[in-house]
């Protein structure tokens, strides 16, 4: 193996593909935590989104015939975003309205996400591990030899967009205010609850989008446990990125690059397979431990607001 142009291109493409679901989820997590709600259910929402996209597209294919339907995967994407938002809404309801422990609520939803797919898969496909492959995946855009899913472009476009929303709009200012000092925001007439609902549901929509990318962009089916901790890694990347879109861009790129490098080196003599698989998790622990000493979360994160 040599470090030739083909290898570097493959590595770059792979990095962008690996970064996409992390970036989408981490940006989502940012909205939730900036509003003051910890959302560890994002891991489960990734799975729910992936399951929804794969099953919706496959079912529609079964009803309409396989023949190419360019619009069909987008229906799957929208459905995944909807389901993601819905699951996040449950988390919001439990942790904002009922002021329950956000970690426990997230754990409950993650447990559901472990169990629900096998029920749905058995119902439709008679096995508990994977869905039938779909014929209509998301398309690939870009010049010959450098083709990527539209969701990859979208994820990177969302970085400036979320930055603008968070720091240049009244909505962003209010969102950050309720995460830092809900009492003060409330006094100024900001509806704390509504802002928090919005932040959490946005995080679910983005994680659902990331799940759709996994199922019908990256692969063409749902596979049990396909998120493999990506939701948690995204949360670590969000912390490492200091709850800021640009920081999150670089931290998720780091994780994406680590995964891509490991994948590219897989099967070579350099790295045994098991080390390759463990690599992203080791990087996550190191990142959480080594560099983030001075990063500060939103002051009111994790605390229910009592009007």
């Amino acid at each position: 193996m040599s470090l030739d142009a083909a290898f570097l291109t493959a590595l770059l493409l792979s990095t962008l593909r690996q970064t996409t679901p992390l970036l989408l989820t981490a940006l989502g997590g940012m909205f939730s935590e900036r509003s003051g709600v910890v959302n560890i259910a994002l891991e489960g929402i990734l799975l729910f989104g992936a399951l929804t996209a794969a099953v919706v597209v496959e079912r529609l294919e079964a009803a309409l015939g396989p023949g190419p339907h360019p619009w069909l995967p987008w229906v799957g994407v929208l459905a995944a975003m909807g389901v993601g938002g819905l699951v996040a809404f449950v988390h919001a309801l439990v942790s904002i309205k009922y002021r329950a422990d956000q970690i426990i609520s997230g754990t409950a939803l993650n447990l559901l996400a472990l169990g629900a797919p096998s029920l749905v898969l058995t119902y439709f496909y008679g096995n508990a591990t994977s869905s039938k492959e779909v014929a209509n995946r998301l398309p690939l855009w870009g010049p010959e030899g450098f083709q990527l899913s539209p969701l990859v472009y979208l994820a990177f476009l969302l970085v400036p967009l979320t930055w603008w929303v968070l720091f240049k709009t009244p909505f962003g200012l209010r969102l950050r205010a309720v995460g830092e000092h809900p009492e003060a925001a409330d006094t100024l007439g900001v509806n704390v609850y509504r802002m928090r609902y919005t932040g959490v549901v946005l995080s679910g929509i983005l994680a659902g989008l990331a799940g759709a990318y996994l199922a019908i962009g990256f692969l063409n089916q749902f596979v049990r446990g396909m998120s493999a901790g990506m939701g948690f890694i995204a949360l670590a990347a969000m912390i490492f990125g200091k709850w800021h879109p640009v920081g999150i861009l670089f931290s998720t790129l780091l994780f994406g690059f680590a995964s891509a490098l490991a994948i590219q080196l897989q099967g070579t003599e350099i790295l045994p397979a098991v080390l390759v698989q463990a690599f992203p998790y080791v990087v996550t622990v190191l990142v959480l431990a080594g560099f983030i000493g001075r990063s500060r979360p939103p002051a009111a994160v994790g605390k229910p607001y009592e009007k």
């Binding site: 449950v90 439990v94 426990i104 609520s105 754990t107 409950a108 939803l109 993650n110 447990l111 559901l112 996400a113 472990l114 169990g115 629900a116 797919p117 096998s118 029920l119 898969l121 058995t122 508990a128």
Partner: peptide
């Protein structure tokens, strides 16, 4: 039914 139905039972119960 798939065995993982227990996670659904447990998750809903916890919620």
């Amino acid at each position: 039914m798939p065995f993982r139905v227990v996670d659904v039972v447990a998750g809903l119960l916890l919620l």
